[in-house]
Amino acid sequence: MSTHGLKTLPAYVTGLILSLLLTLAAFGLIAAHLYKPEYIQNMSVAAIYITIAVLALIQLIVQVACFLRLNASAEGKWELMPFIFTLLIVAILVSGSLWIMYNLNYNMMH
């Protein structure tokens, strides 16, 4: 048995259904924004960006919990800690690149 939680059928089915709903919600939101903005009360572009990002993050958690079966048990911590560390590095890498490149761009133009 691996240190990942045991895979079970209910976990996979839950993961599949939730991922499906989150995916359809994200695609539906963009489709509504492009073709029927009145359906979503002409939601602002900023609000749409945030909603898509939140839906993606929820789906990340769903798939990590249901498909990868990552958990915070004593055994699971061995895998959880490098995972959290990686998330930190990813956040620094992506936000840092955007921040620096935005500033460089701004200073070139002004």
Partner: peptide, 18 residues
């Protein structure tokens, strides 16, 4: 790979289509 794809479709395709 499925988890990476969540971010590919959300960031590249969905946010790109706005």
């Amino acid at each position: 790979l499925d988890i990476v794809w969540i971010f590919v479709f959300s960031i590249v395709y969905l946010m790109g289509a706005i």
